[in-house]
């Protein structure tokens, strides 16, 4: 079977700091990583390949730097990795991104039909989760989002059964193949790269496709021009506006617990044990 995994290289937001004077992100020194959900999608693809045979092709859209992320996917066991990169893709929102990636998946499918497209549930930086539905809609394939388990896959019958995490529980859904699946982090525990794959990754040169390679001759659907949304304003959220914090001395746990009982029961605190922040106990 042929599985395509669509990934994104993202800044590690746990490392992102904001300049408080300019409200801009301090990008320098922020490491780029494969979006964590996407690593689980890749792992699932490799497990399916091990079980059913076939190949795994990874695709991403991004600047030249994204090659590093693609090489990393090779070290995990991907067979091939493709970078869609073009100056004119810059500034793409989710609609324009799904357009370019859709063209890439169509091209990948020309060489060998695609049975399954796996993606992470959402990206760490954008947090939108909108590109996979965009891809599924453009491809005309069913989409199964938020999947935490693949129950059954029957290649001959062209069907797959998955468990989705949805509001209030889980849903077991059966779908026709090909389809688009987005994976949650619960779906598997990703492996470490194997030594032979690391050697291969170190030498690997990802295939690069620009807009001409993808057969895009009109720029109205890509990059900034193809993006209906724009960011008009970025600001740092202000602190919560409240009265002063009331400090409760917890050095006597029993007394502190009594105060908390009163708070939970909507009763006034015993004032003698309370001091506002900044005040001193007498």
């Amino acid at each position: 079977m042929h599985i395509v995994v669509s990934i994104k290289q993202v800044p590690d937001t746990s490392e992102v700091r904001i300049d408080p004077r300019t409200n801009t992100m301090i990008r320098s020194g922020v490491p780029s990583i494969i979006n964590p959900d996407d690593v689980h999608a890749l792992e699932e693809a490799i497990r399916l390949k091990e079980q059913f045979g076939g190949r795994v092709t990874v695709v991403t859209m991004g600047p030249a730097q994204a090659r590093d992320a693609l090489r990393e996917t090779i070290s995990y066991g991907a067979d091939e990795a493709i970078l869609c990169s073009d100056r004119r893709f810059a500034g793409a929102d989710t609609l324009a991104t799904s357009y370019a990636l859709w063209k890439a998946i169509l091209k990948i499918g020309e060489a060998e039909p695609v049975d399954l497209l796996l993606c992470g549930r959402q990206a760490l930086d954008g947090d939108t989760g909108q590109v996979p539905p965009g891809l599924a809609t453009r491809l005309g394939w069913p989409q199964l989002t938020s999947v935490f388990k693949i129950e059954e896959l029957e290649l001959s019958a062209r069907r797959i059964v998955v468990h989705r995490a949805v509001e209030g529980g889980e849903e077991i859904v059966c779908s026709r193949l090909p389809c688009v699946i987005t994976c949650t982090r619960e779906i598997n525990i990703p492996r470490y790269p194997s030594f032979p794959n690391m050697v291969r990754a170190a030498r690997y040169q990802p295939t690069t496709w620009d807009k001409t390679d993808l057969g895009i001759d009109d720029d109205s659907q890509i990059g900034l021009r193809g993006s209906p949304t724009i960011v008009s304003k970025v600001w740092a959220p202000g602190p919560r506006k409240r009265g002063a914090t009331v400090l409760i001395d917890g050095s006597d746990p029993e007394a502190a617990a009594s105060q908390l009982v009163r708070l939970l029961m909507h009763e006034p605190l015993l004032e003698v044990e309370v001091a506002s922040a900044g005040d001193k106990h007498d």
Partner: peptide, 23 residues
């Protein structure tokens, strides 16, 4: 911006070709 809301809105935005702000 629930699982279902995100699931359907992403598809609708692509069908009607319009912008979608998330969350």
């Amino acid at each position: 911006s629930t699982v279902q809301g995100r699931d359907v809105a992403g598809a609708v935005a692509t069908l009607v070709k319009t912008g979608l702000a998330a969350d």
